[in-house]
Computed example of a mutant assay.
Amino acid sequence: MGAARATAPGAFIIQFLGGIHEVYFPYVLAKPLLIVAMIGGGATGVLTNVIFRSGLVAPAAPGSIFAVLAQTERNSYIGVILSVVLAGAVTFLIAMPILLASRKRDLLAESEADARLAASVAQTTANKGKQSSVLSGLAASVGSGDVATKTIEKVVFACDAGMGSSAMGASVLRNKFKKAGVEADVSNAAIANLTGDEDLVITQAELTERARQKSPNAVHVSVDNFMNSPKYDEVVELVKNQKNGAAE
């Protein structure tokens, strides 16, 4: 699944470090058999804590690894840390054969798989009964392409299913513009929602061509990692030079 591969790293950061666990729900819903892996991992974590008689002194909210460690009982660090590691390992070991078994089929029907992931995002939001800022932000998109001479005012990060990393990429670039003293409109959107009036679109490499079709007049920049790309500095320099030239 192209969208799943492209967005998984950002989802991992949000879930493990940020503690927003709902971000992994769409991946499981897109392939329901993965629920077995979730059950196995959860049971392993609980069993580890029972064996070591370890636990927390208060709820960890949000449930990031930092919050969990901060609320861990003084004599429970070994058990709690082991429970996290073993739960992750068991989940991986169960999920791996499930994913490998359907890998060829998913690659042949990648667009269909991406559609299922997008539908899973919508289903997760519906199941929560309210709009999720995390899932909405992750539905952001970023486009990519060649450097051009047109004036850059509107920068859009575009992705397919919009699972967080693009929204975070937009935030990174926004901060870089701010530090450079440059004003620019930086936002995120789904590729399907590109309107064609974007000046510069940032996407992951495999999604660039689709973004180019939706916004053919924009400058397109392809990146491998939304969180940390050297091309962001090039974009900031391009916009800064354009604005300085206009001022002169």
Rank of each mutant, 00 (worst) to 15 (best):
A115P: 05
A139N: 11
A205F: 11
G45M: 02
A37H: 01
A11S: 13
P26D: 04
G40A: 06
P230H: 10
S64F: 08
E206G: 05
M38I: 13
F12R: 01
L56K: 05
L108G: 14
I20H: 14
E198N: 08
A115E: 15
A113I: 00
I35G: 00
T7M: 11
A8G: 07
I65T: 03
V221M: 13
L82S: 14
R212G: 08
L238N: 09
G88Q: 02
S64G: 15
A184F: 04
L17T: 03
A11I: 09
A122L: 04
R53K: 11
Q123T: 13
V134R: 02
V57I: 10
T44R: 06
S144V: 00
D224A: 09
V223M: 03
E73G: 15
P97I: 01
V57W: 04
A205R: 11
D197G: 10
F25D: 08
D160M: 08
G137W: 03
Q204Y: 12
I14N: 07
H21R: 07
G245E: 13
A8K: 06
V23C: 06
L200R: 12
E112R: 11
A113P: 00
I81L: 15
L99W: 02
F12Y: 09
A140R: 14
V239K: 06
V28T: 10
N49R: 12
R103G: 05
P62Y: 00
F177W: 09
V221G: 07
Q15D: 10
S166A: 15
I81M: 15
V239E: 06
A109L: 07
A170V: 03
F66V: 04
H220G: 14
G18H: 08
V221R: 04
A180F: 09
A211I: 00
F25T: 12
L138V: 08
L34Q: 02
A113M: 02
A11H: 08
A4E: 06
H220P: 04
F52C: 07
